[in-house]
Every structure is written in structure tokens, then in C-alpha cells.
């Protein structure tokens, strides 16, 4: 089983990002996704900066994939996406069908991210025919749903043509909006957001009136209020999942990665935090629920 670090979903200062990836270089992660996937106004790092980090990680023996935006709305968003898709040194993670369109036209291989809707084997097959090499399933799907897709007769002879990845740790991206919720929380309009996301390196918590931690707002993205944690489900993944994704929450995520590896076959289970963590989606119930494994 391989381990991947998803793209940093929050807006961190450049120095913190660079320091983080220097730690990543020394970690035992296999695959690293780099880039801004949430908001095109977050420009602490330019494309050249990301490519530099990518080269550094390659030098450290990591596989690198450049992640792209989930919600592209303007010609300039698309122009930026094209720049990523036109370079051929690194594989691209498509988080919107636009990226799949651009990459398949150039016959370039790609990875399909969790923000792309793929709910059945026929859709996966369509992506395979367009050049998909790795697929991260939408976060709302269960182990059962995943098994039904990958075991479909349609994919029987193609199972070695692609890897299956599962988002297994971190606050899950659940929705993308026209609205910037972080700007709204500070009473700014989206156009005059003052890049205030940078003040919330783990997003802003949204509580219900009776203090239930429902969501985390992260710019135009709404995330799960609780951290998804499938550390105790790794054993059940062996026949279906090739890559386990941890989403960077902070530098501590690298410690969590060690814990994941240690429990790969189930010999070092870790009790989940009753207040802060969930695993419901994998078990085919509400995402926010914590199921005893």
C-alpha cells in the first residue's frame, strides 16, 4: 500500500509551505500532490515555486503530481490550468472535467481527483480511455460502493491500468461555492476578500447553535467539521485500495502518516477522537458519524 499527501487545502504563507515540503521530503510518504486547488486568488506561491518544490521532492525520491483547481470560472482560471497541463514533467491531478479535456486532447496521462464525479465503473472506464492512471474516489462514497465499482466486469482486465486512491485523513472538502465563506465571515465581499484565508491556516469552524462542530469554511470550500480518519480501516482496504491519501492539516499530519503505516495490517489501532474525528462515509452511513471498527 502506498501513501500520498493531498494538496494543502488551506492558504498558508509561502515560507510555511516551503518548510512543510522540506519536512515532507524527509518523511516516508510515497506520492505528493502539490498546488492550489481551492481559490485562484491565493498566490503566495507561483507556478515556478510549485515546480521548484516538485523538483526538490523528486530529488528526495517522491512521486509528484500537480493538483489543479476544482472550480474554474474565468478565462484566466482556464489559462492558468492550461499552463499546468502544458508542462510534461509531472502528472496532473484533474479536479474538474476541464482538465481532463485539456490533457486527453494532448494524450497526456492524468490522475482524477476527489472533486470529479465518478460514481460507477462506466464513468471510470471513460476516464481510462481518456488517459487516467490514478483515481481518487469522491469522499462521500463507501467501501461497499468502491468495491462494486472496481470489481465490475467492465474493468476486469483493466485493474492493473490504474491505481485506486482513497481520501483517508483530514477535513473533507464537501462543497464548492460561488461564495467565499471566509470573506463573508469577516464581512468582506468576495472581490474584496483581503486574502483573509491566510489568517485561518486550518479554516474557520462553523458550529451549530448547540455547539456541534458542523463544518469548516475554507474560502469557497465547505469542509467537514470533523476530521475523517480511516486509520482503523486500513486492513479492509487491502484488496481494493492502492493509495491512501492524507490531507495536510498541519505539520502533525506527517506524524499521523507514521501511525497509518504502523497500523497498515491492523496491529496498532488508534482510538479516534470522539469529539473531532469521523469515519462514517466509508461505513456507508452519514459522513459525520464515528463507527466503531
Amino acid at each position: 500500500m502506498k501513501y500520498a499527501l493531498g494538496p494543502i487545502l488551506y492558504y498558508w504563507p509561502k515560507q510555511r509551505v516551503e518548510d512543510f515540503y522540506h519536512m515532507v521530503a524527509k518523511s516516508d510518504v510515497d506520492i505528493v500532490y502539490l498546488g492550489e486547488t481551492v481559490c485562484s486568488k491565493r498566490r503566495e506561491l507561483k507556478i515556478q515555486d510549485w515546480l521548484k518544490i516538485a523538483q526538490m521532492l523528486i530529488g528526495a525520491g517522491k512521486k509528484v503530481c500537480l493538483s489543479t483547481m476544482a472550480l474554474l470560472e474565468t478565462p484566466s482560471d482556464l489559462a492558468m490550468l492550461k499552463r499546468y497541463c502544458d508542462q510534461q514533467d509531472f502528472m496532473i491531478e484533474a479536479n474538474d472535467l476541464s482538465a481532463i479535456q485539456l490533457l486527453s486532447k494532448q494524450d497526456l496521462p492524468f490522475s482524477v481527483g476527489p472533486a470529479v464525479n465518478c460514481y460507477n465503473a462506466q464513468t471510470l472506464d471513460l476516464f481510462l480511455n481518456k488517459g487516467m492512471k490514478r483515481w481518487t474516489m469522491p469522499v462521500e462514497l463507501s467501501h461497499d460502493w468502491l468495491r462494486k465499482i472496481v470489481n465490475a466486469p467492465l474493468l476486469e482486465n483493466k485493474r492493473t491500468d490504474f491505481e485506486v486512491e482513497v481520501f483517508a485523513y483530514g477535513n473533507m472538502p464537501l462543497a464548492y461555492s460561488a461564495r467565499c465563506f471566509t470573506a463573508r465571515s469577516e464581512n468582506h465581499s468576495k472581490d474584496e476578500c483581503k486574502l483573509c484565508c491566510i489568517d485561518y491556516p486550518q479554516g474557520r469552524v462553523v458550529n451549530s447553535q448547540d455547539k456541534n462542530q458542523l463544518f469548516v469554511i475554507n474560502g469557497i470550500q465547505t469542509m467537514s467539521g470533523l476530521k475523517y480518519n480511516l486509520i482503523n480501516d486500513l486492513k479492509s482496504m487491502h484488496n481494493t485500495v492502492d493509495v491512501v491519501r492524507l490531507s495536510p492539516e498541519s505539520e502533525d499530519t506527517l506524524k499521523m502518516l507514521k501511525n497509518f503505516r504502523a497500523n497498515e495490517t491492523g496491529q496498532n489501532p488508534m482510538p479516534l477522537d470522539k469529539e473531532q474525528e469521523c469515519n462514517g462515509y466509508w461505513h456507508k452511513v452519514e459522513g459525520m458519524v464515528q463507527v466503531e471498527v
Partner: peptide
């Protein structure tokens, strides 16, 4: 692309 409903 909104999973808020299934989350709850």
C-alpha cells in the same frame, strides 16, 4: 459537487 447533505 455538494456532499453536505450526505455528510449530515
Amino acid at each position: 459537487r455538494c456532499y453536505l447533505s450526505s455528510y449530515l
